[in-house]
Design a protein around this nucleic acid. Structure first.
Lengths: 202, 202
DNA sequence: TGCGAAATTGCAATGTACGTATAAACGCAG
DNA sequence: CTGCGTTTATACGTACATTGCAATTTCGCA
């Protein structure tokens, strides 16, 4: 990890990352071109693609990590731990991994999180990634809960993630802060765990 | 609605639609260019965008209808009908509306459905559209269930749709028939209604 | 210092999407 | 049936993301 070369690479990566998030926040995602990001980071436009596979990748670079976080929590099921408890633990682990996140970043994680919810193109990408991850998560669940059939596991994961996501989305669209979104996510999980019938006592 | 003009427009639209679905099926979505679709329909490339806002729109033209179906079911809440019952009714209405679908199309609905599942780009788009519709559905729920707060409504919709979608997706990925997918969807709803804690009794 | 590997860059090409202006087709009144 | 206004189709041009390829620069190290 030593060497001028490595340090320079890291610096360039950070410069691109910072420039991108700043520009996205200032003028919006669609209104920012890769050329502008490169210019702000003082590299050639072509170089951007040496660091990020696409414009979206600047934001979703760590998406895999969060999937891995979920798989890790599942693999670490405590003896006899019920499904609902495990999933709640999974949510907290996700929040924690989101809060840390930064390896290359610094104070721009909150900005990034806001962008993910606020920009339609990025939101779409995030939801898609989430969806694609769910069958894998369901499969992992099946392994630690042998009595669970695949379809039920999928339903459980989908119900959990869907409640979480849409509750958060609604909170965000109502102008809530990041904290509000988080609280909404917890509320969503609570409802998913207790079941929609728990809302019937209208 | 009479006139040479209108008929020609409809014919061109169908020609583009048919050409697009056929080419997508033959060579794949990404491997087909708008220029090729236009050529196959014997119009200028630019004309394609006079009929469809984007390449994806060829496939997702009726996406709005299904959202409307959901809103209609909600608006028609029977007196005192509990949330969980309404949502179950919504699912059946969705299945029905999916089976009908065609207005401008003809026998290409099955092809279109297959493409939506098979092509990653289109699958992503479909999931995204579903997600984007959910806040509106949640809002509609709030109107007929005044005691429901927006976040809880969002959680309910998300839990419902998520369970449905992922259960179906898992069934589909396991090579299930359309019938199997449908059954899985029903199972997903059941789990969402009863809550994830109902799976705890492992 | 100088060689080889790695990083950076420039250039061209492809493809989606959109704006604009021009030409063609149409419907209708006179 | 002829000319006019409207709608449609088309050609041309632009912006931008993305990729391949080749030239070039920079770096690490002998």
């Amino acid at each position: 990890m030593e060497g001028h070369r490595e340090r320079k690479k890291v610096r360039t990566r950070r410069a691109l990352l910072e420039a991108a998030v700043r520009l996205f926040s200032e003028r919006g995602y669609e209104q920012t071109t890769v050329a502008e990001i490169a210019a702000a980071a003082d590299v050639a436009p072509r170089t951007f693609f040496a660091y990020f596979a696409s414009k979206e990748d600047v934001i979703f670079l760590h998406a895999d990590d969060r999937g891995q976080t979920m798989l890790d929590v599942i693999a670490g099921r405590k003896p006899g731990e019920p499904l609902s408890a495990l999933l709640s633990r999974m949510f907290e682990a996700l929040v924690r991994s989101l809060a840390e996140d930064d390896e290359l970043d610094f104070a721009l994680s909150p900005l990034r999180a806001r962008l993910m919810f606020a920009e339609p193109a990025l939101r779409a990408r995030g939801l898609t990634l989430m969806m694609e991850a769910q069958p894998r998560v369901a499969e992992a669940l099946c392994e630690v809960y042998p009595e669970l059939d695949p379809v039920s596991a999928g339903a459980a994961v989908g119900s959990f993630m869907g409640a979480l996501a849409v509750a958060g989305l609604v909170a965000q669209q109502q102008g809530g802060s990041n904290e509000d979104v988080l609280t909404a996510g917890r509320r969503g999980i609570e409802i998913a765990v207790n079941g929609l019938s728990s809302l019937d006592g209208s």
